[in-house]
Design a protein around this nucleic acid. Structure first.
Length: 431
RNA sequence: GGAGGGGUGCAGGAGUGGUUGAACUGGCACGCCUGGAAAGCGUGUAAGGUAGCAAUACCUUCGAGGGUUCGAAUCCCUCUUCCUCCGCCA
């Protein structure tokens, strides 16, 4: 959620910046409800004060009939006003949640993802002196993927992954966790990028794969129609990213500033309905209802959150560079960063079969937008309390596997294993 | 899944309808004391909201939500969570 005080102070700006993100919002309606809510609240509080006054004056004594009659009258009025208040409050909250986070000034303004700005391209596109195959062709020929049988069992967009591709996937998770747990590497990344933050390692975490609706709503990530699966007869939704169950870990908590930054690297299987994507990316493992992901999540103070975000992007680039994959970095435009974001970066890997870059990583700069609803706060050394800042970013999804298979394919239809992953593959150079 | 018992502030732990936002103990912070420390003594120690320039005033919160009552941490209902026992089970 956005700070209501900020909206009160900057109604025009909020409407304008929201529109730049593609959200047509009703600021006037929201502020009207805000005013109405406060009026009702003041009336209710005055009545409650009167009620408390009577109770206080009566103390331990038996109340006289006059007091009881007066109390009854106040009670009726309070009941009526409270009813109105809660109705207005509900409408207010619904509207407030539609207000997106404000983009940083540095975020390019755009209307579609085509307006995202390429920051840099890194690595050479491979050239092949044979007819190249796409990752699905290679993997199916190798017996690494079986979509037909998975469809029989679970429906479209599910897959059996088998053999060396499974080992390669686990190698990716292991490698990612090794990097994120290594203080020296992190310190070097920080120094190389002139960042002013701690090199505290990421703590590995395996979160629950489900969360209650209330929790999901607090993260601002519940997207019932397009993305999220609900468990029947339970107040539970399947996560669509480890971020959804790691971010709210400190729900309703006040963290001592000395604990920060808190960094997690979380692994989970994620589930997405992918509604509205029929016919898109149907081959291989690019877009599945169920996929695995290693995710970075951190909690910081407001003054270090932007560097934390840049740090996560730098880590992503380090990981891709270590794998030897060609990639590009995108500064996402206002239309593409998403409601909770103030800024967002994507990393796309080069896919030779499509001769385009495709998204493998994303990094979200959220500021206090999530924390406000999650009520996750920090107690500063001077005792003051502020909202924590959350950042999340992909360490690895399964998509880099696609890039590895395609970029490192051989004429024989094999795949060269990136050197950095070989120790996790029993030393295998080719699979 | 069945039976029973609990969830109170930073922690422990009182409190079964009327100044209980909450006794008491501990922890922590500050002050006094001391050459310095310990001990001792004293003071302080929740979050959110509304009004206000502010000082401050008021409202809410004793797992969550609802109910009874003039009045609820205290009574009732639902949910949730923890513990013990039984059952089941990777």
């Amino acid at each position: 959620m956005l700070d209501i005080q900020f909206i009160r102070d900057n109604p025009v700006l909020v409407a304008k910046r929201s529109l730049q993100k593609g959200y047509e919002i009703d600021v006037e309606g929201l502020l009207g409800l805000d005013t109405h809510k406060r009026q009702l609240q003041q009336q209710v509080e005055e009545l409650r004060r009167q009620r408390n006054e009577i109770a206080e004056n009566t103390k331990g004594q038996k109340p006289d009939p006059d007091h009881i009659a007066k109390g009854r009258e106040i009670k009726a009025n309070i009941l009526d006003l409270e009813h109105q208040l809660s109705s207005v409050e509900n409408d207010f909250m619904v509207l407030l949640k539609t207000i997106p986070n404000m983009p940083l000034d540095s975020v390019p303004i755009g209307t579609t993802e085509a307006d995202n700005v390429v920051i840099r391209e890194v690595g050479e596109h491979p050239s092949f002196d044979f007819e190249l195959k796409n990752h699905a062709q290679i993997a199916e020929a190798k017996g690494w993927l079986d979509k037909e049988r998975a469809t029989k069992i679970a429906g479209a967009r599910f897959v059996y992954t088998m053999g060396d591709l499974v080992r390669l996937e686990f190698a990716l998770w292991q490698f990612g966790m090794d990097v994120l747990g290594n203080k020296d590497i992190l310190q070097k990344i920080i120094s190389d990028n002139n960042l002013n933050i701690s090199a505290k390692p990421f703590v590995p975490i395996l979160p629950p794969a489900v969360a209650k609706q209330e929790v999901f709503e607090a993260t601002g990530r519940l997207n019932k129609q397009e993305q999220t699966y609900k468990i029947e007869d339970e107040d539970l939704w399947l996560n669509a990213s480890a971020e959804h169950t790691i971010a709210p870990i400190f729900l309703n908590e006040i963290l001592p500033v000395s604990d920060l930054p808190i960094r997690f690297v979380g692994y989970t299987t994620a589930f997405r309905r992918e509604a509205g994507t029929y016919g898109k990316d149907t081959e291989g493992i690019f877009r599945l209802h169920q996929f695995n992901k290693l995710e970075m999540e951190s909690f910081t103070t407001s003054d270090s959150s932007l560097d934390e975000h840049l740090f996560m992007v730098a880590i992503q680039e380090y990981l891709m560079t270590q794998l030897g994959l060609p990639y590009r970095v995108l500064e996402k435009c206002t239309a593409d960063i998403g409601r909770p974001n103030a800024k967002g970066v994507d990393i796309d890997a080069w896919l030779p079969s499509q001769a385009v870059y495709r998204e493998t990583h994303t990094a979200d700069y959220i500021t206090d937008y999530q924390a406000r609803a999650m009520k996750t706060r920090v107690r500063q050394d001077d005792g003051s309390i502020e909202l924590v800042h959350t950042n999340d970013a992909t360490a690895f999804s399964q998509r880099p596997l696609i890039a590895i298979i395609e970029n490192f394919q051989t004429a024989e239809g094999d795949v060269r294993v990136p050197e950095i992953l070989r120790p996790y593959m029993g030393g295998k150079e080719v699979i």
